[in-house]
Amino acid sequence: MSRTPLELVCPAGTPGALRAAVDAGADVVYLGFRDETNARNFPGLNFSRPELRDGLAYAHERGCRIYVAVNTFATAGNPGPWHRAVDDAAELGADALILADIGLLDYARRRHPETRRHLSVQASASNPTAIAYYHETFGVQRVVLPRVLTVTEIARLNAQIPVETEVFAFGGMCVMAEGRCALSAYATGRSPNMNGVCSPASHVRYEQGVGGMVSRLGRFTINEFPDGEPAGYPTLCKGRFVTGGCAGYLFEEPTSLDASAVLSELMAAGVRALKIEGRQRGRAYIAEVVAAFRRAVDAAARGDPVPPLGLGGMTEGLRKTTGAYTKTWR
């Protein structure tokens, strides 16, 4: 029996990536402006207003939608950039805003009631009561679930809430509850919540040591990769540290989420949309990952088994995990 396919929500950090995602079969492309108003505020990345306008035209002509992430927390005393991001995205015709900040949700509801509001994963809404609050108070119509729930918990949650849910399917993975992590700020002074960056490039150093490549963040050593061993991002939670006299990956190995193995279960759990992480990744990643998940999502909708996606080369540390979707991960 065929069912409505899961909506495939794909990342873009540049206009080139946006076109690659649309061409590869994305239902939706999500993106952010080139500033601190979104959680991938990386150098040389993201969209100007004219680029968003062109991107919207390109996507809409091809039956694809655009969601704009304004998902950092506005700076006290300087809400201007965040308000302008919401205003411009709404006025240019974005199909939805992805928001996390309560003050900004309130602003968007008052100023642009007609524009769909989605709750960003950065809001960390992990239970029915929290989700109901965002729905009732700010008219949120979809929630991107934090990467802390098992498939069983997601199914139970979906039965209790009046809004759609979107879950992460592939890519980089926070092991901490999103929007509730100041590790990067502790080591670098630059914060995911306030600056839209985690373990920012400006504070990363790679050095070739005798034993291999050493990565440092601020003044802290994050990892050392022996020559030939696959590497990962210099994010704190994927670093190698010493506890109880043993060095290891206490938080998480360098690895990427790959939920393709539980796609049918997520569908059965009532999930509406799948999100691919990676606005910071290149066009090649976007094209390959989006095309693979297009096939997977269509197979799952037909009731067929999801074929192997062959995306191993795209993963961090060349490893993948089903993450919190499987209870043993905890």
């Binding site: 927390f73 006290a76 005393g77 809400p79 900040d101 306030m194």
Partner: peptide, 10 residues
Amino acid sequence: NVYNEGTLEV
């Protein structure tokens, strides 16, 4: 997460 006056007021 209370980072700004907008959230505080709500």
